[in-house]
Amino acid sequence: MSTLDAVAVQPVRSIKVPIAIGALVLLPVVTAMLCLSAGRYQVPAAHVFGILLHDLLGLFGVDPAGWLPGWAAASWTPTERIVVTTVRLPRVLMAGIAGAGLALSGAVLQGMFRNPLVGPQTIGAASGASLGGVVAILLFGFGLPVHLGAFGGAALALAAVLIVHRGDGVSPVLTLVLAGVVVGAFCGALVGFVTFIADPEVKLPGIVFWLLGSFAAASWPNLALLAACTIVGGGVMLAMRWRVNVLSLGDEEARTLGVEPGRDRVILLAATCLAISAQVAVSGTIGWVGLVIPNLVRMVAGADHRRLLPVSAVAGAAFLMAADTLARDLSAAEIPVGIVTAIVGTPVFAWLLRRHARGQAA
């Protein structure tokens, strides 16, 4: 067994503290409230809570003025309400759902392939979605064509990975990972070619900004698309989280326990592909979330995927919401959120690698 395999198989030490896990579950809610409040136009957190509560109760025909004395709708300005509900809320929700989908996909892939260095980019789905998106931008522009191109590119990339991977070799997991790397590299080369031939005055700026990842185009229709795909893909992953535990034991052990590893891998790959391609379709390529967050959460929640997967989802949601808030507020010109996640993710991942190396040397 190689050193990398040993790192992948060896369970990471976990701090099994229910209070810590409970705090992680509450973290996205607190983060969302802070993100809705923060910005160049500051909105007090109390006003944010009041606006959301007022609108939520209004959906059920309840007038909160009768049982919220002193906290009526007049306590906030119309501008604050527009900023919170129209400008920031769909963006914060999109970032949270995208982060949850990416972190959940990364945790599933790491468990399924028994390798903590595997992420959403490994299986080629993100690269395929990026290729489909940039081709759509080049030929048709932004909007629905980008969504269709991203989904189509991810589906074709996954199909290519499965075609290259036969599954009957000495190490089906290794060949599947290598097939994903090959397909991802090929799609990356085609993305580079498309950006090279794009009109530098009209198409190229939009393609580059989209590839770097951004939630600047957040809207309720985009949120609905992202939420629907993430709920379907994430629901499949969560429903099969105990099978991820079995797959992490190896193919022989999985078959002994009555699990068909090849079939389950295809189902899980399709679910992760759906969640990843939906994120790329609405906000471009955002890296490091699915790679770093599951490794950090594993230190707290342990290696049991029945607990690791849902905690990774809520931690990924909080992380990407915070990263997007930094991206839109750090400078006068909005920074692509993919740059922020890379700046934060690379040193954290380097620290994780160092920690694993020390654990192996001990």
Rank of each mutant, 00 (worst) to 15 (best):
P294K: 11
A327S: 09
G290K: 10
T325P: 01
S331R: 09
R307G: 12
W288P: 12
G284M: 11
D304R: 00
L308R: 12
A322Q: 03
P310S: 06
G287I: 06
V314T: 13
A275G: 06
A315S: 14
R307S: 14
G302M: 05
T285Q: 11
V280M: 10
M321P: 06
R306N: 14
G284I: 12
G316F: 11
R307T: 13
V300F: 03
G287L: 12
A315E: 00
D329V: 15
D329T: 15
V300W: 03
S283P: 08
E334I: 04
I293C: 03
I286K: 01
A332Q: 15
V292A: 09
M299S: 09
V311M: 14
H305K: 04
V314W: 05
V300M: 04
S312H: 02
L309W: 04
A332N: 12
V289P: 06
A301D: 09
G316T: 10
H305V: 04
L320K: 06
L330R: 00
D304S: 03
L291E: 13
L320Q: 05
R298L: 08
L308V: 09
P310I: 03
V289C: 10
A333S: 15
A278E: 11
M321E: 05
A315L: 06
R306E: 06
G316C: 10
A315Q: 01
G284L: 12
V280F: 10
L308H: 14
V282R: 00
R298M: 07
A327N: 00
I293Y: 01
V297L: 05
L326T: 10
A303K: 03
L320C: 07
L320D: 04
G290D: 12
H305S: 08
I293A: 04
